[in-house]
Simulated assay, not measured.
Amino acid sequence: MDGLKGSGATSAELLDAPEGYASGLPWLGVHVDSDLGDDVEPNWLGAVAQGAVADLMRADEERTADVIGGGVVFDTGPDGIPVTVVLGTGSIEAGQQFESPADAALRAHVQDVAKEFNLSVESIDIFHPLNSVIRVILDVPDGVDPQWTIDDLTGALAGSPKIVEALFVELRSPQGVALLRQGSAYRVGEGGLWTAPGQDVRFGATRSVPTPASSFVSP
């Protein structure tokens, strides 16, 4: 887990499949210290770890789903009560390599994309579970109806072909209010999306869900 140090993911372990899930493969349990509970960001971290471990364990399997059957995230909620979330896994080609530019180049890339989309960069975090992962918080100006969608933004940030193995984006108002969170973990084909009321339409977020508690979905 050294590659995710400082992300909030603290440790990982191989587990048997959770009760009710048929699988002859190991699952990955990921411990996260976020106090967010079942939310997009900690679940995204679990999927990122799951994909990295699957490719590290891989022999000649063609799909990451042939290596690890799924993931389980252990976190606590805002009330301090432990929360366990079971993640799925997509049928994604194993052994992917992403361009993964130097950190300085990635930071410059995020700044360039933010300028193009008329956004301000609040923070950029870069991690290296295998290749590079970006977590970014962007501020959206008040009174602006974007002429782009969240898929346009994340597509520009991730690049084509993708330059990072995972991406997390949070959009906020200038007052610091969360408007949208989206995470994608490309090694396992898992992603999550949450929007505040009305922001799904504003940002063209067609896969929005009403609350973070049920927001982790396959892209």
Rank of each mutant, 00 (worst) to 15 (best):
L4A: 05
A12Y: 11
A12W: 15
E13P: 03
E13V: 14
D16V: 07
A17H: 03
P18R: 05
E19D: 15
G20F: 10
Y21I: 15
Y21C: 14
A22Y: 05
P26I: 03
V32K: 03
D35I: 07
L36G: 03
L36C: 03
G37Q: 08
G37A: 11
D38G: 05
N43V: 02
W44I: 02
G46F: 05
V48P: 00
A52R: 00
A54S: 05
L56Q: 04
A59G: 09
E61I: 03
E62Y: 02
R63E: 08
R63A: 05
T64L: 00
T64E: 00
D66E: 13
I68L: 14
G69C: 05
V73Y: 00
T76R: 09
P78F: 04
D79P: 03
D79Y: 01
D79M: 00
P82V: 13
T84V: 10
L87D: 08
S91G: 03
E93D: 14
E93M: 10
A94H: 04
Q96A: 11
F98R: 04
E99Q: 04
S100I: 02
P101D: 09
P101Y: 09
A105Q: 07
A108E: 14
A108P: 01
A108H: 07
H109R: 00
D112Y: 12
A114C: 10
F117P: 09
F117D: 13
F117M: 07
V121G: 03
V121I: 08
I126H: 07
H128D: 07
L130T: 12
N131H: 12
V133F: 00
I134E: 01
D139T: 14
V140K: 01
D145E: 13
D145C: 04
W148F: 13
W148N: 05
I150D: 12
D152Y: 08
A156Y: 09
S160T: 10
F168W: 12
V169G: 05
L171W: 12
P174L: 14
Q175A: 13
G176H: 11
A178D: 15
R181W: 13
Q182H: 06
S184W: 01
G191Q: 12
W194P: 04
P197A: 15
D200E: 14
V201E: 15
R202K: 15
F203R: 01
A205W: 15
R207K: 09
R207M: 14
P210T: 12
P210H: 01
T211R: 08
V217D: 11
V217E: 11
